[in-house]
Computed example of a mutant assay.
Amino acid sequence: MSFARVRALVVVALLAILALIFTVVALVRDTQSDAGLGAGCQEGWPKADVTLREPAEVKINVLNGTDQVGLASKIADDFQNRKFQIENKGDAPKTDDIAVLRYGPKGVGSAHLLRAYFLNNAVVDYDPERADATVDIILGSAFQQLATTTEVNQSLGDLGAPVAPPDTCPVQEE
């Protein structure tokens, strides 16, 4: 092996060792590893699950808040085709909105995902007393259709990460 080749290998090895050292130092000194999780929480505040869920992990109730017969069943089938877990279908009091999303502290991340299916035009109705993770979707008279997969992905990008409602402690549960 020539001297130039040995010198090149030494330089590459030195650069690899320096990169490893910088990576370890960055991980050890990371001050943002728990950013936004539990900071400033008051005792007694409910824990809001801000984990962005996959559709297969989200349980929903689809309710018809319009005069259109069978709308809840049709949209529930659409959600089921998109891998959501349908708990119930039925009727609800009439609403003029596109949709109303009702959820509790355990459904914050799930409701955030569902907002994207309505292009962030759904009214959110947070209930701090609700104990389950199921999200109620009440379809209103302004509803036309669910967003396409591309529109959902773009809307999720626009929405950013799920945010805990006021007077809750954000947690990420697995």
Rank of each mutant, 00 (worst) to 15 (best):
E54G: 14
I17F: 01
K83L: 13
W45G: 06
G44V: 03
K47N: 07
A56T: 12
N64T: 06
K83F: 05
L15S: 13
D91P: 06
S73T: 13
A35S: 08
H112G: 01
T31D: 15
L101Q: 01
D30G: 08
S73G: 12
D96P: 04
E43Q: 08
A72W: 14
N61G: 03
T66A: 10
D34V: 07
G107Y: 14
Q85W: 02
H112R: 04
E57T: 09
G104P: 00
T23I: 00
T51K: 12
E54L: 09
D30V: 09
G44E: 03
T31V: 12
L20V: 15
K47A: 12
A76N: 10
V28A: 15
E43L: 05
A72V: 03
L101A: 05
F79C: 01
A76E: 00
D97S: 06
S110W: 05
C41A: 10
E57H: 02
V100K: 07
D67M: 07
A99Y: 14
T51E: 08
F22Q: 14
N88H: 07
A111L: 07
Q80L: 02
T51W: 06
L20D: 15
I98N: 07
L113E: 00
I60Q: 06
H112E: 00
L15Q: 10
K47R: 13
A56C: 11
A16G: 15
L18C: 06
A48N: 06
T66P: 01
V69Y: 08
L52E: 09
T23E: 11
G109E: 14
G109M: 15
L18P: 13
S73E: 14
L113G: 02
V108T: 11
L71Y: 11
I21D: 04
I98S: 08
P93V: 03
E43A: 11
I21L: 03
R115M: 13
F79G: 01
A99G: 13
P46I: 01
G70N: 11
A39E: 15
I75D: 08
F84K: 03
Q68L: 15
R102K: 14
D97A: 04
D34P: 02
A39Y: 15
L71M: 13
G38F: 02
I75N: 04
G107P: 07
L71T: 13
V50K: 05
C41P: 09
K106N: 05
K89Y: 05
A16E: 02
A76H: 03
T23Q: 05
W45Q: 12
V25R: 09
R53Q: 03
A92T: 03
R115F: 02
F84Y: 12
Q42S: 14
G65Q: 09
D30S: 12
D77S: 01
F79M: 01
E57C: 04
V108K: 06
I98K: 11
D49A: 08
F84I: 00
L101V: 00
Y103T: 12
A72D: 00
L37F: 11
A99P: 00
N81L: 09
E43K: 07
